[in-house]
């Protein structure tokens, strides 16, 4: 195995394209190094992107924020601007692993690892975040929703990698929240999860909403029926019951070592409802 630490995106893309099957991007490494040690993958080349100029920066752009692909969870959580604007995204990223893992893990890595249970992904999808991808054919922007294509699979093409993720501007009286269920309080993979982003009018009625679910299907689910259940309502019990039902109906969970189909179906509805309440509260609404 070889290790390279290019300083430009072009050089990184060239290295990745030179050996598309056996090269891997190293950002935080918190999934990659575990997979290598466990013998699940055996790459010939690791391309460490952390030395690329600007890739560890968070920059204000168009009223939102562009988060470099190598920004760690801990760094994101220390950025007051992002925390204020997208608290749900930040809390989702901060749930990845331990304090130690937070020192290394990245949103882009969490996304590209393409685990159905990735914590940051439902929150990013609810936020309608957009990934910027660089590859042999230049740069393109792709909605985060369209990156995961199956367990361990992404829509990135050979030689492509994510350089940043853009969190858009958000209107006044809008916020987001993310909740996951794990059997312990920390150090677990989500059994199921829900991210909710919404906007309120002056009376506290939800006018816009995006609801995304994790670990209940091979990829993250954006549930439009769940959003519909929220729009036009306050987060009262009936609304949240309708939201929960939409979520339970939409999900396609499996039985595995972490949970059962029935449990995931039930609990994802509970989490979506609780996240919606928190998002409303953060957006300035009353409960």
């Amino acid at each position: 195995m070889q290790y390279a630490a290019p300083t430009t995106t072009e050089e990184a893309a060239r290295l990745l394209a030179s050996n598309p099957k056996a090269a891997r991007v190293l950002a935080g490494g918190t999934d990659l190094l575990v997979q290598i040690r466990a013998g699940m993958i055996a790459p010939d080349l690791l391309v460490d992107i952390k030395k690329i100029n600007g890739i560890r920066d968070i920059t204000a752009e168009g009223g939102g924020y562009r988060i470099g692909a190598a920004v760690s969870g801990a760094e994101l959580g220390e950025h007051a601007g992002v925390v204020a604007m997208w608290p749900g995204v930040v809390e989702a990223v901060e749930l990845i692993g331990s304090t130690q893992v937070q020192g290394r893990c990245t949103m882009a890595g969490n996304l590209c690892n393409a685990s159905p249970a990735a914590d940051s992904v439902p929150a990013l999808v609810a936020a309608d975040a957009v990934a910027r991808i660089v590859g042999p054919r230049g740069e393109r922007n792709v909605a985060v929703l369209d990156i995961p294509r199956g367990v361990g699979k992404t829509s990135l093409e050979a030689g492509e990698f994510i350089t940043s993720i853009y969190l858009p501007k958000r209107p006044d009286r809008a916020s987001d929240a993310y909740l996951r269920f794990i059997p312990r309080t920390e150090m677990d993979i989500a059994v199921c999860s829900a991210g909710v982003s919404l906007t309120l009018d002056s009376k506290g009625i939800i006018t816009e909403a995006r609801v995304a679910l994790g670990a209940v299907a091979p990829t993250v689910l954006l549930v439009s029926e769940a959003a519909k259940a929220l729009i036009g309502h306050k987060p009262d019990d009936a609304t949240l019951a309708a939201l929960g039902k939409a979520c339970s109906d939409a999900c396609k969970p499996i039985d595995d070592k972490r949970g059962t189909i029935e449990f995931r179906r039930d609990v994802v509805a509970v989490l979506a409802g609780r996240a919606a309440r928190i998002a409303c509260q953060r957006a300035g609404g009353s409960l």
Binding site: R184, T185, E186, M187, I189, K257
Partner: peptide, 15 residues
């Protein structure tokens, strides 16, 4: 199926 501390869940400090 769970030969690791991720899915063999011993209590952590916050538990």
């Amino acid at each position: 199926q769970n030969a690791g501390f991720l899915d063999y869940r011993i209590p952590v400090a916050s538990d």
